[in-house]
Every structure is written in structure tokens, then in C-alpha cells.
Design a protein around this nucleic acid. Structure first.
Lengths: 138, 138
DNA sequence: TCCATGTAGATGCAGTTGCATCAATATTGG
DNA sequence: CCAATATTGATGCAACTGCATCTACATGGA
């Protein structure tokens, strides 16, 4: 718990210092970007492992910021389809170097650095297996 | 991040279901209990890796719940000395089985279970080394 | 001694979270 | 076809967080 909080706070501080949105936004923007055909909130929910109400409000913030557009969900009047806007793509891209640099700084020099793959494997088992790897490179 | 959130939420749910206080309280109660001569908030701050205002308010809640008593700090009129009350000891003790059981459930059957020591070592490097192990057994 | 600076801890405010619940649409069994 | 139930997503409320700032006491130097 301590480790994850330390890491998260380091990343959050770096993003804030760079005038960028908080960390949660990154994952959400990334997942939405991966679905050019649009993605529905309930699908995001399982991918991001967020509670329903949390995601609902996160989306509201992203929409208000102009990073995400809501559209109707074909064939289901309850749902909606989310798409990334150009601004959304731009900010996600801008976030990555800052995010990555903060991570690098945190891990540099620790045992976890050389054994990252092993650490990731161990932790992945805890998330209920769930989702595919999250490869946020470019 | 996902792994730690999953674990934390599982523990929080278990504690709440048992009518017990949230997880943060456990660590704080534990650390205070370890210092029968009393401990000062600023010392707790470094042990718990909490921000100053967060700890200040956590202590306020613990005091209001009757689990912690504030006393004057000898030789420093600004400070205070915290002690656990009997109720505090009791609730900390009551929390542990629930806490532990939730952890066991989360780790059971994962690779992390058999490699707990390795995982702990990797993660510990990330917390800035900091503190001694946190052995909340009895 | 007095002032400048440093440290301990508290707090107002705005934003976020968890919980419970709601409205709207979908689906299913009779 | 309709009523019962399930699913999707939103929201009021109370609690909690981060940030900036504040008060009170402490300490060091002129």
C-alpha cells in the first residue's frame, strides 16, 4: 500500500507540476483512444476496474474538459459511445513523457528496476487476472 | 496501481462489513500502540508516510472516536503526545483478523502468495526505504 | 532582549469519493 | 403483449483529500 501510494503521489505531483490532468485521466484516455469505433462506459468499467459511479463522474469531467465526446449507443438507448477528441489525443500524448519520467525516477536504483517483469507478473495475479497488458508507449 | 487498489478495496469492504473502522486507522492505531510512552504526530508522519494535514485529521477522527488520547508534549508547547486508549487497543485487535483474512483471500492462489517475501522486498525499495517492517501479528 | 526565521499542528475551501438510490431503457417469462 | 426484473448510467449526500494558509510555540542571531 505504501509503495503504491508513494509512486502514485510522485506521478500526480509531476503531472500537476506540468499543468497536466491527474493520473486517472491517462488510463481512461488511453483506453478510449484504443477504441476508434467508440467504447461504452460499461466496457471501460471492466477494463479500468473503476466503480460505476467513479467512472461516470470521470467521464463527465473528461467531457467537460473537451477531451471526450459522448455519442448515442446504436441499438441501446440507455448506453452511450465515447470517442476521444483531438484535444483528448493531444493531452494523452503530452502526459506520457511526464508520467513515464516520474515512474523512471521512482524505480531507478531500486531492486524493482531490474526485476520489473517479475514484479509486474506478481502484481498482475492480484487484479483478478483481468485485462491485457497496458502498453502506453507512444 | 490496479493491484493495490483491488487489495485495498477488498480490505476496506471486509472491515466495513464487519462494522469496523477503515484501513488507515489500523496502521495509525498500530504505530501508536507500539509507543507506550506516547508518540508525537510528526514522528507518526514519517512512519506512516502520510501528509501532515492528512495525519492531523486522521488523529482528530481517532480522538473523536475515543481510540486515541492527546496529551501535552513535555518540553515542547507546540507538540502533543498521543496514547492509545483501551478502546483503541480493543478495536485494533478486533480489526486484525478481518484485515488478515481479507489479505489471505486476495493472495490465495496467486503467484504472489508463494513469493510474498520477494514481492515485499521489491516493493519496499520503492517507499524510500524508510521504516522497519510492519509486523501486525497479534 | 527582540526580531527573524523555523517547526508543529490545525483549518477553510474546493474538488473527489463511497454509498445509496434514481430514472430510463432492455429483456424475459407468462 | 405486459408486468416483473435486470442493466446502464447519473446524482444527492456525507465523508474525505489536497492545497494553501494560519496560529502558536521554538530557536538562533544581533
Amino acid at each position: 500500500m505504501r509503495a503504491s501510494r508513494q509512486v502514485r503521489e510522485a506521478v500526480e505531483r509531476a503531472l500537476k507540476a506540468a499543468g497536466l490532468p491527474p493520473l486517472d485521466w491517462y488510463d481512461a484516455l488511453w483506453e478510449i483512444e484504443q477504441a476508434p469505433e467508440g467504447i461504452r462506459p460499461n466496457a471501460l468499467e471492466t477494463r479500468l476496474l473503476l466503480p460505476q459511479y467513479g467512472l461516470s463522474r470521470l467521464i463527465a469531467r473528461l467531457v467537460e474538459a473537451g477531451y471526450v465526446a459522448r455519442g448515442p449507443s446504436p441499438g441501446d438507448g440507455r448506453g452511450q459511445l465515447l470517442h476521444l477528441t483531438d484535444a483528448g489525443r493531444a493531452v494523452r500524448r503530452a502526459m506520457w513523457p511526464v508520467y513515464g519520467a516520474a515512474l523512471t525516477r521512482t524505480f531507478a536504483g531500486t531492486r524493482a528496476e531490474s526485476e520489473a517483469a517479475r514484479l509486474a507478473a506478481l502484481l498482475k495475479g492480484l487484479t483478478g487476472e483481468g485485462r491485457p497488458p497496458q502498453p502506453p508507449i507512444a
